[in-house]
């Protein structure tokens, strides 16, 4: 068993968890990621409301976004004019949070400028090391998912790329193949 603290998977990508807002920030971007209706939308708005209460009078640029791609666009627009002292908060599913984190990391933000509130952590994106296809599935780390690109059965490894937000997937039965026996 891999020790959770020794992997690259953030705690909020294992199970739903909301990090506290950072009161030392001077200004904040708040990305509320999820469709307007339904359970996820309700949950992320509750997280956002909690953060806004924590932050009190600090200036907060709030963006309600239908999905992670919209949130990433809003993030880039804010970062283009942001000064050091700015913080970014992301409320969404773990999948959306990881996607936005990847964009933030690529834009040069540091871990201590980012806070996440994941309202669900059952769905993750898995990147296949064999064919580079990415699949989205309700699968836990340690589980197995079929790769849509090469049909291999992928073990979802306890590793998330900071640069892409995808979990690492590799062939689960690579050591149990016919060519091994015929050798």
């Amino acid at each position: 068993m891999v020790s959770p603290s020794a992997t690259s998977v953030p705690p909020w990508a294992r199970e739903p968890h909301v990090e506290p807002a950072d009161p030392t920030g001077r200004t904040h971007t708040l990305l509320v990621v999820g469709p307007g209706d339904g359970q996820t939308g309700t949950a992320v708005r509750a997280v956002a409301a909690g953060w806004q209460e924590e932050l009190g009078a600090a200036p907060v640029h709030r963006h309600d976004c239908a999905d992670a791609a919209v949130a990433v666009d809003a993030l880039h627009a804010d970062l283009a004019v942001a000064r050091v002292g700015h913080r970014v908060l992301v409320a969404g599913t773990a999948e959306a949070c990881l996607a936005v984190r990847a964009a933030a990391v690529r834009a040069g933000l540091a871990d201590d400028e980012l806070r996440f509130g994941a309202v669900a952590a059952d769905v993750r994106t898995v990147w296949c090391v064999h064919c580079s296809a990415t699949t989205t599935a309700a699968v836990a780390a340690g589980g197995v998912v079929a790769c849509p690109g090469c049909a291999r059965s992928l073990l979802v490894y306890e590793h998330v790329s900071r640069r892409t937000g995808h979990h690492l997937g590799f062939m689960v039965d690579a050591e149990d193949q016919p060519w091994e026996e015929s050798a």
Binding site: R83, V84, G85, R87, A107, D112, E113
Partner: peptide, 28 residues
């Protein structure tokens, strides 16, 4: 701009003043 890193060197009380000013403005 948000990608900036600050490097300071000098007497201890000078660096304390620089860092305190930065932290007060939200520098992580």
């Amino acid at each position: 701009p948000i990608g900036t890193h600050l490097y300071t060197c000098g007497p201890a009380d000078f660096m304390d003043a620089v860092l305190a000013a930065a932290r007060a403005l939200g520098w992580p």
